[in-house]
Amino acid sequence: MELPVRLIAILLVALAGSSFLGGCDRQKADAPQAPTQEVKAATGVDRSHKGQPAPTVQFKNPDGGDIDLGKFKGGPVLVNLWASWCAPCIKELPTLQTLEQSQTEDGKLGVIAISQDMAPQGSVEAFLAERDIGRFAAFHDAEMKLTEELGIQIMPTTILYGSDGKEIWRFVGDLDWTGEQARALLAEAR
């Protein structure tokens, strides 16, 4: 018996919605979902990758061409990995856009958000525009190569790279990027 396409879509949305607590846990399909307490304990600042170079895997720039994080070397850059199915990601995107706009004026820190959605790039642009955060450039990693290469398990995860292209820290989970905690962390950009 074949299920109608609409019913399959509803089931997929319901299944994806079950991971919206504290951060979006990215685990293998056959692994059990971690309890909420464990996910929350894993969020916050992680300095265990300090000094590691940015990966060279390619993703799509807003024009659809290939790019990698090496393009941003030479100045500090804040890289946010997010997905449209991740509620904490959606919650923090407007604060990232505000940060990006203020940094564009100051020119001190690059800020990019890279979608980890498997949908076509045009759907990422539409998603951002529908939520009035369409000024954000729609970088897109449909194959989720960055999450794999960086060992990301929870989205959103945001990584600060120094001007030398090496990781300074990563923040696991959502954060108000216009708040005091973010300002203190971003003061480490060099």
Rank of each mutant, 00 (worst) to 15 (best):
M1W: 10
P120C: 04
M144I: 10
K60M: 10
P156V: 11
G122N: 13
T147A: 14
E143N: 11
L78H: 00
G74C: 09
P32Y: 10
A189D: 04
G75V: 01
A138E: 04
L128F: 09
F139A: 06
G173I: 12
L15W: 03
G65R: 10
A16K: 02
D176V: 14
S115M: 09
A34M: 13
A113N: 01
A83W: 06
E105I: 15
G134Y: 02
L109G: 00
C24P: 00
L78P: 01
D164V: 08
S102D: 09
Q37I: 13
Q121W: 02
A184M: 10
K108A: 07
E38H: 12
F59W: 07
G51D: 09
Q37Y: 15
S102Q: 15
K91E: 15
H49M: 11
G64V: 02
L185W: 09
V124K: 01
K166A: 01
A31N: 14
I10G: 00
V79M: 04
N61A: 13
V13G: 03
D63P: 00
C86W: 00
I90L: 08
G165L: 10
Q103T: 05
S19N: 11
G173T: 07
F20W: 12
V172F: 00
I67C: 02
M1D: 06
A29Y: 09
A34G: 05
H140V: 07
E92Q: 08
S19C: 09
I90H: 10
A113T: 11
I159D: 01
M1Y: 07
Q33N: 13
A182N: 06
D132N: 15
K145Q: 13
L186E: 08
A113L: 05
P62M: 03
G75C: 04
T56H: 06
K108M: 00
Q37L: 14
F139L: 01
V57E: 05
G64N: 02
Q153M: 08
Q37R: 15
V111N: 12
E92G: 09
G70T: 14
M118N: 11
Q58T: 10
S48H: 13
A87V: 07
T104A: 11
Q37A: 15
A182R: 07
P94E: 01
S102M: 07
A14M: 09
D68C: 08
I168C: 02
L12G: 03
A87F: 02
A129E: 09
P156E: 12
T95S: 13
L146T: 01
P120F: 02
D106T: 14
D46V: 06
Q153D: 06
G64S: 04
W85K: 00
L81I: 04
G107R: 13
A184N: 08
E2L: 14
G107S: 05
Q33L: 15
K50Y: 12
F72R: 02
M1T: 08
D141G: 14
E125W: 03
D30C: 05
L93T: 10
V111K: 03
M144A: 14
V39G: 09
P120E: 13
A113P: 01
